[in-house]
Amino acid sequence: RFGFPLVEVWGMTETGRILADRFEPREIRTRAFGRPHGGLEARVVDERDEELPADREGELLVRWSGTEGARHGFFAGYLKNAEATEEAWRDGWFHTGDVVRRDASGMLYFVDRKKNIIRRSGENIAAAEVEACLQAHEAVAQVAVLAAPDEIREEEVMACVVPMAGATADARLAAELADWCLGRLAYFKAPGWILFVERLPTTGTQKVQKAQIFPRGEDPRQRPGAIDLRARKKRT
């Protein structure tokens, strides 16, 4: 439309560098953000910091490969928090907190922030994937997906939905949204709870502030209007 390409990139304040899907053929709309290059090394690891094979999701670790040292060009450290700095740099690699996957060619794909991963019955669920699915429904204006506690499954998927103007926010719509996800995602990723809200707290750049949706310590399942959809989630 404007005569120039939009390039998907990954970067953090701490790293001082970016990775970018800038070489042809580019993988547009796949959440690809490039391969390590120019001296920046990357690994994808599990919770024990062990390397994962291709196409497995894990945390992205990065470092500088030059003789200047692994931290060359990165941030100096977290202000007045040397312990957090060393934790982020454990074993000589910077732990980004981003969950990604890497294909056999080395291309990296963004999944979600590690803190946004929902752990349900041993399955890792990216909140961003469920949000993208719900956002595609015509009755959804805005959505935030987060983890609700569950006595059996550890955590359950909960969606806080701002409905489109004119949509009736009731149990029927909640069931429709759950079925919408069940038809497009693995059954365990569909929301087990839906709460319709008038608005979601956002930053000045319109990024949803999930930590402000519920006060610390509140069980979101107990919020008036929360609709239980867990019975619809069945393995087929």
Rank of each mutant, 00 (worst) to 15 (best):
V7M: 05
I194D: 02
A128E: 15
A186Q: 15
V145G: 10
A54Y: 08
P201H: 01
W10P: 01
I227F: 10
M164T: 14
L52R: 05
F188N: 06
E154D: 11
Y78M: 06
A126R: 02
Q135W: 12
A32Q: 03
L60N: 05
I227S: 04
K115G: 06
A132M: 14
A148V: 06
G69I: 09
G34A: 05
R102A: 01
G58I: 11
Y109G: 02
A231W: 08
Q142N: 14
E68T: 07
A82K: 08
P224N: 08
P163H: 04
N116K: 09
T85M: 12
R63L: 05
T13D: 14
P163K: 01
A128M: 14
S65G: 15
V145C: 15
T67Q: 11
L229W: 03
A171P: 04
L60W: 05
E218G: 00
L173V: 04
T15K: 10
L61P: 02
K80E: 13
I194Y: 03
F110G: 06
Y78D: 06
P25R: 04
H37I: 06
S105Q: 04
M12E: 14
E176D: 15
E123L: 08
L52G: 06
D55Y: 09
T205D: 09
G58M: 06
T168H: 11
G225S: 12
P224Y: 09
E129K: 15
E68D: 14
A76V: 15
F188I: 11
E41K: 01
P149L: 07
C181T: 11
R119Q: 13
E154V: 11
V145A: 09
I152F: 09
G106A: 00
K114I: 11
D150K: 03
A211E: 15
I152G: 00
E151D: 13
E8F: 00
G166D: 06
V162G: 03
A174W: 01
Y78P: 01
A42Y: 00
K189T: 02
G92H: 04
K233D: 01
R35T: 09
E218H: 12
G166C: 06
P25M: 02
A20R: 08
H137I: 04
G66M: 12
I125D: 01
A126F: 04
A178G: 13
I118Y: 07
G97S: 03
V44Q: 00
L79N: 09
W93C: 05
E86G: 07
R221H: 11
E83V: 13
